[in-house]
Design a protein around this nucleic acid. Sequence first.
DNA 1: CATACTGTAATAAAATATGTTACAAATGTA
DNA 2: TACATTTGTAACATATTTTATTACAGTATG
Lengths: 135, 135
Amino acid sequence: MLSGKFAITIHILTLLNKFPNDYLSSEYIAGSMNLNPVLVRKEIANLKAHHIVESKEGKNGGTKLAVDSSKLTLKEIFEMTFETIGLGYAKNQPNPDCPVGKKINQNLDALYAEMNQKVSTQLEKISLEDFSNQF
Amino acid sequence: MLSGKFAITIHILTLLNKFPNDYLSSEYIAGSMNLNPVLVRKEIANLKAHHIVESKEGKNGGTKLAVDSSKLTLKEIFEMTFETIGLGYAKNQPNPDCPVGKKINQNLDALYAEMNQKVSTQLEKISLEDFSNQF
DNA sequence: CATACTGTAATAAAATATGTTACAAATGTA
DNA sequence: TACATTTGTAACATATTTTATTACAGTATG
């Protein structure tokens, strides 16, 4: 399922990478993205669970990169944000008495799996540092 | 933007390919997918606009493939359903005073364009006939 | 001990996707 | 001709998902 999670997460990480010595507050990050700070904190919670960032509570607290940005790839970010590439499914359970209906989702799954593989292969070649250097 | 359009469309086309000599009704197709016939007709309208199918109104009417299924690729279906691969954008306009905010969408666009290219290259290798033969 | 943060839950609002109803127009057939 | 069946399409309704807001307990700093 698609959403802005990947985009938000990569934006956060790019900012953190630009200020590697500071703890940035969610308020500050949200300001750069024009987004609600709570949403930023939610994505940061996810990054923390994956040990990509560390954060400090309390006054002057905030978040900071905890890994080497040249070693973190966009593929990992993609996976951490639970994203997958796909072109959807007919939402309803297709008719199991129809030979097409019975196997359609299975065949779409296989197709989407191949697509994910291709995309992953490509995202794996790009590090956070690479991405960040474009700015 | 993602939705089930691609999945619905490919299901319709697979069915039409299985019965190349019949005009299938939207009611029948919808039955195989367990979906509302109006939604099927909407996707068919799109297929008609691209001259992939032809349909006949009135009694005993329905829809029928109008192209050679060995020549129609999944890439074309992908493009006809207006789908693109992407990992989203932070929905709000990012802050233009921030060097990251100012360029983030542009850089994401470039990344997604590459991803689309990879996926298209792969989908181009698969014809409707190939897909249909899996059933 | 006041202040400025994080963390998180609960709720609300907005956007998007899906489903339904309705009906005019077309076409085959009794 | 009259009837039944089907497409085409618009208008509306519902459901689902995303995004935003509010609220507040807990934690560190000075």
